[in-house]
């Protein structure tokens, strides 16, 4: 019934991202792919995964076919353990209760900094983007997984504006800026899975998605990429993963 050979880029993102999560973790998730991926992980392998939403939700189990339109809607509270004020749920990040922050991204750079504020000069922007929301708080205070579309204009050497900090200018610059905890952990795209070098803090390819070449990843990236010495190829989405994902989002709100 579920064709494992046909799937969209968004489905790949959600499935590969869900594989990065471990049972028992506390995950702070954004809406869209992160919420889907975290819920998918809960249903497939991680029944003890706790999902937090910035609207103030602790421990949600989102219902299949009733995905919330944002992380601030009543659907986010479905079967949750607790609802808090939104400042208080964000403060859980600062105290250190959260293992993984999980977001989408519009523009990212070699050090994992994310821009969702301005395209062009912030003083006279070509495009004013929506802004940080909780993105800055999450990326400042915990380990991050980012799932995003892979395009050259989105993978740039240096972002126009650091909305949500990754490793800032690499090396120890994140710690020296007053952010001693957390940092970019993984970036997931429809082409590859990325990590960050321990010292330089530059992005590197850990695994290629099935059927994707090194050249293809490099050609779609606006800066020179390093490839891990133990570079692997990711297992393709299984029919079971696709089946559960399609039950979660039957209307293809986030997986078209």
């Amino acid at each position: 019934m579920t064709e494992a050979s046909h799937y969209t880029a968004s489905e790949t993102l959600a499935i590969l991202a869900s594989r990065q999560l471990k049972d028992g973790q506390v995950v702070f998730a954004g809406v869209g792919t992160p919420l889907l991926a975290a819920t998918l992980a809960q249903q497939l392998r991680c029944p003890g995964l706790t999902i937090l939403f910035e609207g103030g939700v602790v421990g949600a189990f989102v219902e299949a076919g009733k995905l919330p339109p944002s992380t601030n809607d009543q659907r986010c509270t479905k079967r949750a353990n607790m609802v808090l004020g939104s400042a208080d749920v964000l403060l859980l990040l600062q105290r250190g209760y959260v293992d993984i922050g999980f977001m989408g991204g519009a523009q990212i750079d070699q050090f994992g900094n994310l821009n969702s504020s301005f395209i062009g000069d912030p003083a006279a922007p070509k495009t004013r983007l929506p802004g940080t929301g909780g993105g800055n708080d999450i990326s400042s205070l915990t380990n991050m997984i980012v799932a995003m579309k892979h395009e050259k204009r989105r993978f740039v050497e240096n972002v126009d504006f650091i909305t949500s900090p990754g490793f800032i200018r690499g090396g120890d610059s994140r710690r020296d800026s007053g952010l001693p905890a957390g940092g970019m952990f993984r970036v997931i795209t429809e082409l590859a899975v990325f990590g960050f070098d321990e010292r330089s803090r530059r992005m590197k390819v850990l695994a290629l998605n099935p059927g994707v070449s090194r050249e293809e990843v490099q050609d779609n990236t606006g800066f020179r990429l390093d490839f891990d010495e133990n570079l692997t190829v990711t297992e393709p989405p299984t029919s079971h993963e696709l089946q559960i994902l399609r039950q979660l989002d039957p209307d293809r709100l986030f997986t078209a």
Partner: peptide, 25 residues
């Protein structure tokens, strides 16, 4: 935004926080 309202509600002129540091925000 939350810490700004909270400081306002507490009757203190500011609150400290650890996010936003290092960013262009």
């Amino acid at each position: 935004v939350g810490m700004r309202y909270r400081a306002g509600g507490m009757g203190v002129p500011f609150l400290p926080m650890r996010a936003m540091l290092g960013s262009d925000v």
